[in-house]
């Protein structure tokens, strides 16, 4: 539930950058013989609509319709009074509030005479909305255009990189604000939430792995207990819709903390060199510190703001080396589990 700062700054996100993205998508759709494009959005799956419009609904759901030409249409079940506010923070597309957004989009499709309807992530598209579109626009064909969207979004443009840079700085600051002297994990992590949101985070998920000796599972505040000898903070946040994560490990003992800091410094120095695979880069960076148990790389994928695109077992599931990514690493250093994550490639 988005409740942090949501505002559009034309300096940060010029409308022209969004127009360029739409043009790239339309070119890819045309190659596939698709007439129009529809994407679904909610707070969990806001990535694609955000990329095209700069907006994620703070609540509820919506559908974005991109005709072959002309203005996009964003239809949402949020209340009528909210339309004006959405327009003020969404630099691209016309906003309509309606209890039946998919029927509204279906009627648009029928009016436009489109036949092949490109749906992002058709398998995951809500069945009720698909049915409403098919009822309002009988005879159309729903086509999965996930790959076409991925090609259009292939790399991060300068606008996205700027937002990610700000998000990354916030996430780092938030992780650095934790109260290591706390006995309880909730008190340890609460300052991170404050720093992130004071810095303008639109959303922030703060989790803790309270005792790295027993588990690396990051839990929410309702499941947290006291802190063990070594523990970690995980801050996932969005700044103006751009998501990143930062994970940092801590120790109660100063000597152990030095060991954790060495691994953290290695993570901060991590870079992917030309011609090098992710696996090679991880081995080069962390090999001298201990045994790497696991690593995962995440990038935006379709409607998912961040999703795994490579890991230790499967080195490339869709990883784009030229785009920024979150690298999450787990290793055993000096006999203790260490976990860390940060955005790479900004």
């Amino acid at each position: 539930m988005r409740r942090g700062l949501m505002a559009w700054d034309p300096q940060e996100v010029p409308a022209s950058a969004l127009a360029d993205r739409l043009a790239r998508l339309r070119a890819e759709l045309a190659r596939e013989g698709v007439d129009v494009f529809v994407a679904y959005t909610n707070i969990a799956r806001g990535g694609s609509v955000w990329w095209l419009t700069g907006f994620t609904p703070y609540w509820n759901e919506g559908l974005l319709y991109a005709p072959a030409q002309g203005e996009m249409v964003f239809a949402t079940a949020l209340s009528k009074r909210v339309a004006e506010w959405i327009s003020s923070v969404m630099p691209a597309g016309e906003v309509t509030t309606t209890p039946r957004p998919s029927a509204f989009i279906g009627e648009h499709i029928a009016r436009d005479g489109a036949k092949r309807i490109g749906i992002l992530e058709l398998d995951d598209f809500p069945a009720g909305h698909a049915q409403a579109i098919l009822q309002a626009a009988p005879g159309v064909e729903l086509v999965d255009v996930t790959e076409a969207f991925a090609r259009a979004r292939n790399d991060s443009d300068a606008v996205e990189r700027l937002l990610l840079t700000k998000a990354d700085a916030l996430a780092q600051a938030a992780c650095g604000a934790v109260d290591v002297s706390s006995a309880h994990a909730r008190d340890f992590i609460a300052p991170a939430e404050s720093v992130a949101r004071l810095g303008g985070a639109e959303e922030c998920f703060t989790l803790v792995a309270g005792d790295l000796r027993s588990s690396r599972a990051f839990v929410r505040t309702d499941s947290m207990g006291s802190l063990g000898e070594t523990f970690a903070a995980r801050v996932s946040l969005a700044y103006k819709g751009a998501w990143t994560r930062h994970v940092r490990s801590f120790a109660k003992d100063a000597g152990v903390q030095q060991s954790m800091d060495r691994a953290h410094a290695a993570l901060m120095d991590f870079s992917l060199q030309s011609g090098e695979t992710l696996a090679q880069a991880v081995a080069r960076t962390f090999g001298s510190l201990g045994e790497v148990n696991n690593w995962v790389a995440e990038q935006p994928r379709g409607s998912y703001p961040l999703a795994p695109v490579a890991n230790m077992a499967e080195s490339a599931q869709g990883f784009t080396a030229s785009a920024p990514f979150v690298l999450d690493v787990e290793l055993v250093t000096d006999g203790r589990r260490w976990v860390g994550a940060r955005m790479i490639g900004l």
Partner: peptide, 23 residues
């Protein structure tokens, strides 16, 4: 206005609340 939200969220996390709907 978002600074008020920051204080609320920090308070809620410290008190074990993982989610809060707030406008």
């Amino acid at each position: 206005d978002y600074e008020l939200v920051a204080e609320m969220e920090s308070f809620f996390r410290a008190n074990g609340v993982p989610e809060n709907f707030m406008i």
